[in-house]
Design a protein around this nucleic acid. Sequence first.
DNA 1: CTGAAAGCGCTTACAG
DNA 2: CTGAAAGCGCTTACAG
Lengths: 350, 350
Amino acid sequence: MALRYPERVASGSNPETPTRRPTLEMVAKEAGVTRSTVSRVINAERDVSAATVELVNQAIERLGYVPNRAARSLASSRSMAVALIVPERAEWFLDDPHLVALMAGASRRLEQSEYVLTLIAGSPDPQGKTMRYLSSGAVDGGLIASHHDQHSYLQTLHRSMPVVFGGRPAAGNEEGSHFVDVDNAAAARLAAEHLLSLGRSRIGMITGPEDMRSVVDRYDGWRAAVAEAGLPVDAVEHADFTGAGAVRATRRLLERAPDLDGLFVANDIMANAAITVLQQSGRAVPADVAVVGFDNSTAATVGPVPLTTIDQPSIDMGWRMADALLRILAGEEVPTGITLPTELVVRDSA
Amino acid sequence: MALRYPERVASGSNPETPTRRPTLEMVAKEAGVTRSTVSRVINAERDVSAATVELVNQAIERLGYVPNRAARSLASSRSMAVALIVPERAEWFLDDPHLVALMAGASRRLEQSEYVLTLIAGSPDPQGKTMRYLSSGAVDGGLIASHHDQHSYLQTLHRSMPVVFGGRPAAGNEEGSHFVDVDNAAAARLAAEHLLSLGRSRIGMITGPEDMRSVVDRYDGWRAAVAEAGLPVDAVEHADFTGAGAVRATRRLLERAPDLDGLFVANDIMANAAITVLQQSGRAVPADVAVVGFDNSTAATVGPVPLTTIDQPSIDMGWRMADALLRILAGEEVPTGITLPTELVVRDSA
DNA sequence: CTGAAAGCGCTTACAG
DNA sequence: CTGAAAGCGCTTACAG
């Protein structure tokens, strides 16, 4: 048998004496108590005398003991891990700072807990590895980011374990699902009204994939505000939240609505791309076309024109998602939906 | 006792009959064989008759059996998980597409394996949760991204489990450490030589944190090329790989070297920020100052000027890191260092 | 090719 | 406040 790493020889030590991780048993012996007692100390249960706690802790220290996660998990049927599920191909991250921010926020919250984060990226095959993993008891709960409506199988997940969605789940599957979201419709209305207040009268929108709830909500909010102002709402193009997609969408839009003077774009990355296309077509931003983005991500300040955009507290959303999940796992009552505020951040583009 | 989730009542089923995950035992009974045999089938060992395999697989199917990870891990002393360790505060991700790309690449490689990815972000306290986690047997190996030299404790990690670094580890600790890297010095030389070939004669550099090996290598490469051309190498400022930091660094640089006509910046994000500052100071890019970035990340095409930059195959690096680790875990011999090629991508900024 | 048995390292009622 | 014992759900030599 090939030597397995955990039993590997520590460098410099006797090759005949493989290092072995200390166990509960060894700590118990060292401290002169039973395994039960050591276990209680480790799990910070009360009802252990201060003297014993001290004794055990010293033994733990002396041996450099760290509890074995697998054994703990097996005995307690809790894994102390949660999954961050991103049902997109992993490269998607590169084009979506919002997703990265969700992850960063969740990670930050989890750091302060005993739980660890398992990253599940890639478009999941409902029958495949991902779903099997999630059913294997490997995680105690899930955080789901950027789900599309067709990923409805993800929504059955909350029957087997607690789950918190980033963004409201698709309509019709909402019972029992927890989520953290912003009011996308209201935020989009804010953006549209800002463009209207600037006197713009031919206002377009570049939106995202139609199967995402947040996308639909942003469109609805934009549309309502523009329609209420008595203006046409036909200057709309769909894109995929990437810069490349937005370049194409903006070109299509300009062909159909060359008189465009205001534009709301569903995220900052796409807004930057749109501005570049507008400039290439000889239009100045914001003089000829005023542009409002969405996210207030790092992209908002590194593009061709500093973006006026909707600030979405993405990091905080991730933090709240993890926080809600931890509370649920701790048995607390948690409100089903948490809606975080957005605000308009005015820079140069509108 | 509060009802635990895994034992929760399936919606619609009899409240008196909590659903319980099927076990190996149950599959064995269902198939009319022993646990040993089922285990062999699951682990795809040979030496099981085709008929038995069929029988067992049907039972697994019928019961919807998924092996319990914790039990498996405990019995086999392998967790089938690897850690991606990012020794930075989690928000760092937001400013570093390279890091995100490493993660995406690693995630993609791991998807095709039986292993899962645990994300460990946050500046690690050597005594703290992270190191305890890594010693708990919870992961079989580690991928370490963006390590600074002072994180030398991470380098002791490879004594207890296989580890692959993204970027060469600090000098003096290299024995036995696997890594995937690009030749940063050669790449930086490429950038400097491009600026020289453009006839630039006052070439500066904005570099990153001095405690990172890749940063030092990039500086060395730039310096060597510029010095060989007989030009001064004093126009250098350090920054922190963020846009905000680069803004300050560029301002400092312009005060000291107002005659700057060429600039090499250690990543694209900072290059975009530098260009903005240059433009604000009345300098045209590339006419007055030619700028070369590093990474060829998504930032390269969304900034104020499309960047001429060094293409670093970040996604591929992540993929290779994971691939190397998987091979090591499979017992294969893997070269200690893997160096990936870079190339100059010429756009508008230089 | 398959089975019986021990064991992985913990937690958890149950006693006392 | 502490111990003895069973059990969590697998894998792994060892026999045959």
